[in-house]
Design a protein around this nucleic acid. Sequence first.
DNA 1: CAAGCTTTTGTGGATTTCCACAAAAGCTAT
DNA 2: ATAGCTTTTGTGGAAATCCACAAAAGCTTG
Lengths: 407, 407
Amino acid sequence: MNPFATHFESLEEFADRVSELLQCPITIEDANHRLIAYSGHEHYTDPARTATIIHRRVPERVINSLWREGVIPKLLQSEEPVRVAEISEVGLGNRIAISIWKNKEVLGFIWAIEMNEPWTEQQFHLLKQAAKAAKNLLLQLQIRKHKKEERIQEFFWKLLTGHVSSPHDIVEQCHQLNVHVYPFFSVGIFQFQQQIQTQVERQIDYLLKTTQQLAIPLYTIDHQRLIVLVAPSSNVYGESHIERFFRSFMTQMKERFRVDIMMGAFGNVYECYTKIAKSYEEAQTVLKMKRAFPHQLANIQSYQHLGMYQFFDLLFEQKRHGDFHNVALEKLKQYDAQHHTNLVETIETYLDCDSNVNETAKTLNIHPNTLAYRLKRISEIGNIDLSNMSEKVKLYIDMKLDKYRTT
Amino acid sequence: MNPFATHFESLEEFADRVSELLQCPITIEDANHRLIAYSGHEHYTDPARTATIIHRRVPERVINSLWREGVIPKLLQSEEPVRVAEISEVGLGNRIAISIWKNKEVLGFIWAIEMNEPWTEQQFHLLKQAAKAAKNLLLQLQIRKHKKEERIQEFFWKLLTGHVSSPHDIVEQCHQLNVHVYPFFSVGIFQFQQQIQTQVERQIDYLLKTTQQLAIPLYTIDHQRLIVLVAPSSNVYGESHIERFFRSFMTQMKERFRVDIMMGAFGNVYECYTKIAKSYEEAQTVLKMKRAFPHQLANIQSYQHLGMYQFFDLLFEQKRHGDFHNVALEKLKQYDAQHHTNLVETIETYLDCDSNVNETAKTLNIHPNTLAYRLKRISEIGNIDLSNMSEKVKLYIDMKLDKYRTT
DNA sequence: CAAGCTTTTGTGGATTTCCACAAAAGCTAT
DNA sequence: ATAGCTTTTGTGGAAATCCACAAAAGCTTG
């Protein structure tokens, strides 16, 4: 006979029942480690569980430890209970965990704290029965959520495309949809190697829901791209917070799920939600420029650090009208062609290296004096004053615009 | 009785007549030292005269000497003959010169070579009579010229404003108007201190017509501006030729006529005459930028050397839409305001000085180590990588755009 | 006013840059 | 092939830069 074959009013009631039967504290989480229910009996509770209950989610460091220890991969692979040894650094006592399945998808987890004695076969069997019973309860939750999700998605796309009304209305709608409004935000994009499949969607959802580095009130998936609204807790070090989150998201996708993300990018941080479309545009610009200048912008993620490449679409448009043709550059190109020299490459590398002689010489594999000689020739042939910032800027931009054209 | 009170078929006939009476070679020039007529009798002729006749104009170095010796100023002041001592460097022998007047305007000059003996009173008297007689002959030339001038002016304005047809038609029209077509050209503008008066117009005409550094097929005057079409002889060192001409024109206007020119500027050198409007626009851009950045661009005249300022109108337009706001710069400004520091000024000067520490420190009157410290703070506070060209460019442009806004 | 912070200036030494000069290597055209 | 050019590499010394460390001066705050 199944002890869970009755009707439960709520998941809490269910958790309490499991706790009674197993004689230990029980915590039920969804697939993203958000707290769904927990037993209320007076038992010993480790610090990790306390923190989980207080914040209504498992602390990120605990999740990270569980990944590192291989616990979560195991849970995601089998329906069997997993024994977890104490991880004292994160306040986690001895645990038994089991995943809740529906078809081939994990809906959530049940965690039990292993009290003094080791579990009996009987207890393990009970836990497995509990996991089966939890499935139906969780499914009901899921359905309710999915409906809301769809409305939120639509709302987010409206924000991204600028089809929005007043800031006040936006906040109003957020409240209706139960989307938290943060004081600062930025729009980010992750470009994946391939079209994002359903399984990867779940993995993305998992990572985004479990991260606590910053809030992600909204996100959506579009072909090969994941678009997120990120909200750093403060804007003082906002940029670097986002940077760090982006890097860790990408490494985690790779390490945990073997999913490659080509690149990530995000726009400026704004306060008013009407600027979401703008931040989105900026993020798209970053991606575009990273594609055109993969080497230069390999380590750049933010629009803020795009530097002069921010201007490029605009300048390029103008250049196509035939403006800005650079006589100096043309002369250098001509000279290169006629004399089989590398003056253009030289000056470009030199400027890439921030006018650093040694670095440039190393990059080009030439003697520093050779570089000096070439620079002298460049300034003669192109009639350029290489100690004039404005001229250098012009030349640099024109060279990069040239490259941009060929992509 | 006046020996010139007869009708002369041509100016040549007149010159021969004068030559006969004075027993010496005679040359008649217009007010711009262009050859109008010369006597053909076999007399001794100095190299300066030979060159004048061959090139149909007085060589520029001869003109310059005559100015330097004070000969021409004297001629422009009085109707009396002026004795000119030999200037052997330019091949000029002993001469007697007199100016030809109409009301208060000089129409031209008569030059006589003083042969072996010094002139008698009688000869001077004859020369004065000749100058009076020449007046009417020159006037007829003038009238014919004026009419043509007007049609040329109209044509030039059409070219400048882009109201032109095909390149072929332009060349056609040039031929009709007797305007020489050169393979390369650029449009230049001189900005005068004040509205250009008739007298100054003549002085401009004089300098433009006498210069031989480069050809000036067309020019026009508009309020405080003189607009010239300049044609360097070759485009190899075209830019520098034009530069030199601009400088010398401005110094000569000042030294010879006490007329101040605020600044000069010229556009790119093109080959096709349909690009005149473009070159003109570029020259206007240079003037505009020189007004906005008088210090930085004090020594810049050409569009080519405007460097990054070429972009500024375009970028500024975009910036007004609220794009490109620079968080780093805002943070620095904020820090400056709160802590009474000069970080923005420091970084701007540093970039102005092409990242040269010593020069910057001297300019700012601070210790080099102070500068180093400030730069460190700047990169911390603004989250800027000062060894990244692209970021430097962005910051530099944003700072200059800020300045541009306030002008 | 004392403590703690930021900012300025100083010192010294390793490293880099700049410059002049020269040798060697490579290319081109007669 | 040779002469004349450009280009590369080398040497050495003066000047500038970079860096670490420290003292002093200036500001802010309790």
